[in-house]
Structure formats: C-alpha cells, structure tokens
Nucleic acid binder design. Structure first.
Length: 680
DNA sequence: TAATGGTAGGGGAGGAAAGGTAAGACGTAT
DNA sequence: TACTGATACGTCTTACCATTCCTCCCCTAC
C-alpha cells in the first residue's frame, strides 16, 4: 500500500550551502534526486537556471518561456500547444542529459556506499550525518555506544596560520610544497579521537611515554595503548582513496575512469569532513579538544617547514642561492629557491619535500606539487601564476581568489582581468595588456559593452528583514517581488542586477536594477560606476606590481580613452522628469526652431538632406540585418524556424543583444519617419 | 522541531563618528 | 558731548561636506 503523498516545507541551513526553503513530497518506493541540489552543492556557478546550467555543461539551451505566457499558449491553437509541449519536454530531457553527463548518480552512489547513508540523505542532509554513519559503523564493532550529547555553544577556536605574503611579481620559478591531506594525517599521526582523549586526571596516572600533549595543551593516549576510531576511519578512507587513484591510473576506458575519479574524490571529501565534524559546535558530537589540537599541530608544522627549508637551502650550506618562503597557507609553502629555470626548481622542491617529511611523524608527508613561473602574489589567498608540473611546458594559468574566479562581480571584470593576466604572464607583454585595458575602458564609457557582460549576481542569503545594512541585491529582490512575485528571486537564489545611472551621490542599492527591466525600459547604465567600483581596483592590484607603483593609475585611467564618454540622460527618475525633450537636427544635432519640430534637418544642413537620409537608411539596414541574424539564432535554439521567438532567458547573451537591437531598430525607424515628406 | 563540517582572509558597501569648512549669527570697535 | 546707525572685523555656532573607521556581507582558500 502506497502512502498518501503530501506536500511539506523544509528549510536547510548550513554555513557551506547557505539557507534554502524547499517543498518536499513523499513518494513511496522511489528515490528523489533533485539535479538542482546536486548543482548547488557541487558546482560554483554564476547562475543556476536550467538554461544557464545546460549551456554551461552541454553547450545547449532551451527556450525560456515566461510563466505569464504559459496560459496563453495552452488556450491558444494546436500550434501554440505544441510549443508548450516542446518546452515541457525540453524541461524534462535536459536534467536527464545533465545527470548523465555529470555522472551524478554514479558519484552519489559511490559516496553513499563509502559513508553508509541512504542516497537521499546526500542531498537533503549535510556533511555531519555521513561522519556519524561512519562512526556508528566503527562503534558497533567495538561494542561502543555513541553518546547523545546536549548541544552547548562554545567559543570559536583558532584555525590555521596563513604566512604573511611577500607580495610582488616574481620572475623566478616558485616551488610549492603541500602536506598531503594535512588534517587527516595529523589525526592519524597523533591518534586524535574521542576514545583517546584524556582528562588531566587520567593523564596524571599514566606514564609520560604513553600519551602526548598537543600544542594547545590537551592530552591524547598513544595508539599503542588504545587506537582511536577516527584514525581508523581515516585510514580506511585514505587507503581506499589510494586504491581508487591507482585503479584510475591503470584504467583506460574513459567512462570507468570517470567513475573511479568520482570515487577517489568522494573519499577525499569524506576524509576532510571528519575534522570539520569534530569542530562543528552545532552538531551531534562536537569535540573542540580534537579540532583545536589538529589546527594547533598544523600551525606548528607550517612554521617548522618554513624554518627547515630556509635553514637548509642557503649559500652557507653549499647551495647556490638562499631560499625564501614567500607565502604559505594552512598546508602549503611557496618557496623561491633562487634557481632561474623550472627544472632546477622542481628538483630542489622534490628534495626539500623529502627532507622536511623526515622531521614529522608518519603518515604526515610533505609533497612537491608544482612550480609557478612567473608568479604574481597580490595578498593572502590571492595570487596567479603559470602552473608547471613538468619542466617543458606549463599546464595552465592558475588564479586563486582574484576576480577571475569570483562570482560576485560583472563578467566584464573577470574577462578583462583574465585577458590581462594572460598577456602579462603568458605573453609577457605589459604594453599589450595596457592597450587592451584602455580599449575596454573606452568601450565601456561609450556604451559599447553588451549588458550581459555587466550583470552582477549575488546570493540572497537571508530575508529582507534580516539584513542590517541595505544591500543592492536584497533591495532589488524586494522591488522585483512587488512587480511580479512569481518570477522574483527567492531565498538562496542568486539575484542578477546592473547598476543604472542615478542621482549624484545615490547609493549603489538605489541604482541596482533588474537587467531585463533595464532593457525593456531603455534605462541607461552607470558606466562610470562600473569603471570606478568594478574595474579600477582589481586592475590596479594586478598592474601595480608589474608596471610600478604610482604610475599605474596615470597610465590606465587618464588619457584620451576616458574622455570619449557619450552623454546619457536618464528617462526615468531624477531631474529627467522635468526636462523637456527638444527636437534636434539629424545632421548637426542643433535644436530645431519653434514651428519646425517635425522637420528632419535644420536650414544649415538642408543641402545635405539626401546624403543624411542615405546614411540613416544604411544604418537601419545594418540593424535589420543584425536583428535578423539574432532572431534566426534564437529560432534555431528553440528548434523551429517558422514560429515567433518567445524566449526571455535572462542568462542568454543573445537574448540581451536581440532585445537591444530591437530597441535600436525602433528608434532608427523613428528617425527615418522624420524624413517623411522628403522628396527624391 | 530537528538539523545545520571548520577558520582565515580580502574587499566592496553602508553607516556612524570624527573632522574640516563655509555661511550665518552675534558681539564689539570704529 | 551723548547717542545712534552703518560698517568692518573677529569669534562662535551651525549646517553641510568629505574622510575615516568599523561592521556587515559575500565569496573564496585551505
């Protein structure tokens, strides 16, 4: 007998995944596997609409039909109902294709098997349940019972050390040494577990050789006396991962290769979340003695590593150069050995990794991972460089923390910075980068940048009332709710917006607007805001170390390219409401005298009227051609060349272009109309 | 209600507070 | 000579601004 299916509300909240409100239904005998949740958890994207995700992974789009049109389509003709059906079918087929392509089911099944939780838990619950499940698997073998602890909120504990970076642009290879699975290996090496934790009293009764005292003053009994559960779980996970990695290397079939890769990834994630579990204060079994000891060991180790490397690799000890640790974060150190070629740096890196590993308890191991050459170190957690794993060629350009990998800026910024870095790091062509940047700035100020490139998105992490400061995306979300509650962003959604021209001194949240609304109402963009608040600082940060402090600002932001601004006037709000539009001459833009408002040109330009008419006709044709191209492209996308385009996909650059050209076309048509009585 | 991995850190934006300046108010001397 | 009004000038208050600092918020590194 099947249960009655009912709809319920759930909220899920965690620091990693944010807060979301969902509807749930119970279906007996079937596992519900929501692709949206998979994507939200596993991929960091600028937008999570089916359209945008499909384009991202499958390079395929679907028609986006606004909910208000659906009723019209249904109650229309056979033809419109057919379109609705196609739309619905696409809605169903795309998720399946995505599931397939991303191998979601396979990876999630692997995870479920490794951690021992039902498949549905992986999407409806957090990380903790997986660790609890593994703990229970172990405790049952040892006849232990997991206590049901009352949750009490304690203080936060100290985390990892981030070494102060020696900022700058490095033209010498920088070797990177990493501890492999740092926190799990610390827990294994020092036998840190609930079952090995000693009270002060218990420690006093033991021989000093039987237990260790961690850097933050907690005592744990050694594995020889009693081996902890957590180290056992971790061992199991990491040996399984090693095996999966070895199998992965042997495997030739690309499909099975992906499966094994998914498996080893799942194992890595599980191992890492064991530490997080002990530090999760709002959790099943928090144990800050363990988590704070783990981080304390980590802090000690990174300082030690820095010292060991710098003390050994110097001219005094017979090496060619003095090595210098220029940066390090949690489990890694970046070393400038001084060698000027990648191969030599790699050799030194490998040697140093082996040397340092000797100084730590098994299974802690420092590994040589890669060389950056050249390397641009901007600040803590922000750097870029060419990534070498073999001496011959670089594998990729690696960017950490900077605008190219962040989702909370305009795509224009990410693209510009990325291209500049390519020119600076790969081509080593600062002049080319500067010229390119100037071009883009000029394009921006002249309104030649496509609006899709200017859309900023931010996640709505709480409801309006919970925000103590006004934020652009939350204020806009509220505004959109008033316009149309159905399509407005909800809690946990990413809100797209652009900054439009507004009164002088207006706050950003007053100038944020829905991109589609902007298009439909031809609201001008505040290009200056984009230059000053989006482009300027990131550009300064990457250019300054390379072309020199002080002069960057002059080179990039002063000069002709910033003067070609076209004046834009707002059509809504501000003073614009009181301004009266005057008819101007199409030839010279002079204001037409009273009584002549309907003419096309002024007296002065009259002789050139036919020439001007030709010019306007030409640009009309150009626009028409452009529009036709975009229209056909959209028709192709919707899969029929015989029907109107209804799509309003706010993630599609073509949609924005089509809308813009449509507006331009209308305007141009108006211009032509003014020549009305022109005689040939 | 039950359930929600961790800390470190950069950087943009808003908002309060402290600081600077010009205009006006007021008093005084001539 | 006494009184009054006009003017100039200095000091204080006030309103308005730009700047600084702190906090919130988002996102990322590990």
């Amino acid at each position: 007998m099947a249960d009655k299916t009912v709809i319920g509300n759930t909220t899920f909240q965690s620091r990693a995944y944010g807060k979301r409100e969902n509807k749930v239904i119970n279906i007996s005998g079937a596992v519900q596997f929501d692709l949206l949740h998979v994507l939200l958890r596993d991929y960091k994207l600028r937008s999570y609409t089916l359209n945008s995700v499909s384009y991202h992974f499958l390079k395929e789009q679907k028609e986006d039909v606004q909910h208000s049109i659906i009723t019209d389509l249904q109650s229309g003709t056979d033809q419109t109902r057919r379109r609705l059906a196609v739309y619905c079918m696409k809605d169903a087929i795309l998720p399946i294709r995505l599931l397939d392509k991303l191998m979601c089911i396979i990876n999630y099944m692997e995870m479920a098997r490794v951690t021992g939780v039902p498949l549905s838990y992986l999407l409806s619950r957090g990380q903790q349940i997986k660790v609890v499940s593994q703990l229970l698997r172990k405790t049952i073998l040892q006849d232990l019972i997991l206590p049901s602890q009352k949750i009490e909120v304690g203080d936060e504990y100290d985390g990892a050390t981030v070494l102060d970076p020696v900022k700058g642009y490095y033209k010498l290879p920088i070797a990177t040494l990493d501890f492999a699975s740092l926190y799990p290996s610390i827990m294994m090496a020092h036998n840190l577990c609930y079952t090995s934790l000693l009270t002060k009293k218990a420690a006093a009764e033991l021989e000093p050789t039987d237990y260790i005292i961690t850097p933050c003053g907690h005592s744990f009994v050694k594995a020889s006396i009693r081996k902890g559960l957590l180290p056992e779980i971790l061992e199991h996970l990491l040996t399984a991962r090693k095996k999966a990695k070895a199998d992965l290397k042997k495997e030739t079939d690309p499909f099975k290769k992906k499966v094994l890769d998914g498996r080893q990834l799942a194992l890595k994630i599980s191992a890492n979340s064991v530490y997080g579990f002990t530090g999760a204060q709002v959790g099943k079994l928090p144990c800050l003695e363990i988590s704070s000891s783990v981080t304390a060991f980590g802090r000690q180790m990174i300082d030690r590593t820095k010292q060991l490397v710098e003390d050994k690799y110097n001219i005094k000890n017979g090496y060619k150069y003095d090595a210098k640790v220029i940066y390090g974060d949690t489990d890694s150190v970046m070393v400038r050995f001084g060698a000027d070629n990648v191969a030599e740096s790699m050799d030194l890196g490998k040697e140093a990794a082996a040397f340092v590993s000797e100084h730590f308890v098994q299974p802690i191991k420092l590994e040589f991972e890669k060389v950056y050459f050249p390397y641009l170190l901007i600040s803590k957690k922000r750097y870029a460089g060419l990534y070498y794993t073999k001496p011959e060629t670089y594998d990729k350009m690696d960017c950490k923390g900077i605008e190219t990998v962040r989702r909370d800026n305009a795509p224009l910024v990410a693209r510009l910075i990325n291209n500049c870095l390519q020119k600076l790091l790969i081509d080593r062509d600062p002049d080319g980068a500067i010229a390119y940047t100037k071009n883009i700035i000029s394009d921006l100020l002249c309104n030649r940048i496509d609006i899709a490139e200017l859309v900023i998105t931010k996640e709505l992490t709480k409801t309006e009332d919970d925000y103590s400061n006004k934020q652009a995306h939350s204020v806009l979300a509220e505004k959109m709710k008033k316009r149309d509650a159905g399509s407005a962003p909800k809690l946990g959604d990413r809100v797209p917006y652009v900054i439009v021209a507004g009164a002088k001194g207006a706050k950003a949240y007053e100038k944020a607007e829905d991109p589609i609304y902007v298009l439909e109402n031809s609201i001008p963009i505040d290009t200056k805001h984009y230059l000053e608040h989006q482009l300027m600082n990131p550009l300064m940060r990457i250019f300054e170390p390379i072309i020199g402090e002080g002069k960057t600002s002059n080179v990039l932001f002063k000069g002709e390219h910033t003067l070609v601004k076209t004046l834009v006037t707002a059509k809504v709000g501000g003073l614009a409401r009181f301004a009266k539009k005057m008819a101007t001459c199409i030839g010279c833009r002079a204001v037409l005298p009273k009584g002549h408002e309907n003419s096309s040109v002024c007296q002065h330009c009259k002789p050139r009227e036919s020439e001007l008419f030709q010019k306007e006709i030409t640009s009309l044709h150009a626009l028409e051609e452009k529009f036709n191209k975009l229209w056909t492209q959209c028709q192709r996308c919707q899969g029929s060349l015989h029907e109107d385009v209804l799509c309003t996909s706010s993630d599609c650059p073509i949609f924005y272009m089509r809308k813009k050209v449509q507006k331009d076309l209308l305007h141009q048509d108006g211009v032509i109309q003014r020549f009305g009585d022109f005689e040939w």
